[in-house]
């Protein structure tokens, strides 16, 4: 009995507690990311944004959430029910399980696996299923077109992302996220690999279907893309999933290029601040970039989007992989 408690139950409880410790702040962040988005864009457009519910409109996300919860879940009569319901669940779950391997500080990670970066890459490549299942199961042409666009877009940009990740891995010599962060102790990879950083960030925009690559849900042409038939809780899951994905991609960018939890300089005022705070600040900065881009740029045309992915990013990142490998071998800096 003691064995059972010590061997299984207690560690299991600890893990569940850890999961909650990650998920609750994450979902709060998602809620307030929507608030921040509206406020930031409002400010850029010289408007006020939400300001009625609570002080400065701070309770707006809560009000939105409650509204969505209490609406009726409408399932179209022509829809494939099981897949229709499964799609938002898949999207939501996938946006959460990626956090299992994200290190918030040295050793502060739920699961420190050897192939952390591959795990994240695999999770992000699965993201396309939620979209494509939703589009197909809705039995609606707008939804299906949106899903097709989205799937093609995500698959295309994933390749560039993969090559960018490989350049970083070449410099690190490990697939473990903690190792990747520690390898940036002296110099963040954003500096030597600046072009890759830019490509990664833009691909992350495309991968999360954010402006200016938000064609899958282009209101003007496709009503709302793959989520057009969704309402209430199912829509809320999509919504949460997309924003959680934005945060996950930002976290990944921070880990790969901006030194994770490390302070910019390892000197007095900086290293007083704890690692998780640095990590959060960096993520917040990147999220601000996401919003800023949305407020600034018009939407891409679809052929331009594909051209950018296949004819610009793919060759550029491939070239950079070769260049990085060549430099590392020639100078003997390659990690063993």
């Amino acid at each position: 009995m003691v064995d059972l408690w010590q061997g299984y139950a207690w560690p299991g409880l600890v893990i569940v507690a850890q999961i909650f410790a990650i998920l609750v702040p994450l979902l709060l962040t998602v809620a307030y990311l929507t608030y921040a988005e509206r406020k930031v864009i409002a400010a850029m457009q010289m408007r006020k944004g939400p300001n009625v519910v609570g002080p400065f409109g701070l309770l707006q996300p809560v009000a939105d959430g409650i509204k969505l919860l209490f609406k009726e879940t409408v399932i179209p009569s022509g829809a494939n029910r099981v897949v229709f319901i499964a799609a938002p669940v898949v999207t939501f779950v996938l946006s959460l399980i990626g956090w299992a391997v994200i290190p918030f500080d040295f050793g502060v990670v739920l699961s420190d696996i050897n192939v952390g970066i591959l795990y994240l890459f695999a999770i992000s490549s699965l993201g396309v299923y939620g979209v494509i299942m939703a589009g197909w199961a809705s039995n609606s042409k707008y939804a299906f077109l949106g899903a097709l666009r989205s799937a093609a877009q995500m698959v295309s940009y994933e390749i560039a992302i993969g090559f960018v990740i490989i350049t970083v891995l070449l410099c690190v010599g490990s697939l473990n996220l903690t190792d990747i962060v520690l390898a940036q102790k002296d110099l963040w990879f954003a500096i030597p690999l600046l072009p890759m950083f830019v490509i990664f960030f833009i691909s992350a925009l495309a991968e999360t279907n954010r402006a200016p690559f938000d064609l899958p849900e282009a209101e003007a042409e496709l009503v709302a893309g793959y989520s057009v038939e969704y309402s209430s809780l199912t829509f809320a899951l999509f919504f949460l999933g997309e924003y959680a994905n934005m945060i996950l991609m930002s976290a990944l960018t921070v880990i790969l290029f901006l030194g994770g939890w490390l302070p910019p300089l390892d000197v007095a005022p900086f290293n007083w601040i704890p690692g998780p705070v640095w990590f959060a600040v960096k993520i917040a900065g990147l999220l601000f970039l996401f919003l800023w881009v949305r407020a600034t740029f018009p939407r891409y045309r679809y052929d331009q989007l594909m051209r950018l992915g296949w004819k610009v990013f793919l060759p550029a990142s491939l070239f950079w992989v070769v260049l990085t490998a060549g430099v590392l071998v020639a100078t003997g800096w390659a990690p063993v």
Binding site: I113, V115, L118, A122, S125, I132, A151, V155, E158, G162
Partner: peptide
């Protein structure tokens, strides 16, 4: 673990799509 992740990335993430 490497094979597992590659299986997901390649087969699930690309081929099955």
């Amino acid at each position: 673990e490497f094979l597992a992740m590659v299986l997901v990335v390649v087969y699930v993430g690309a081929v099955a799509v």
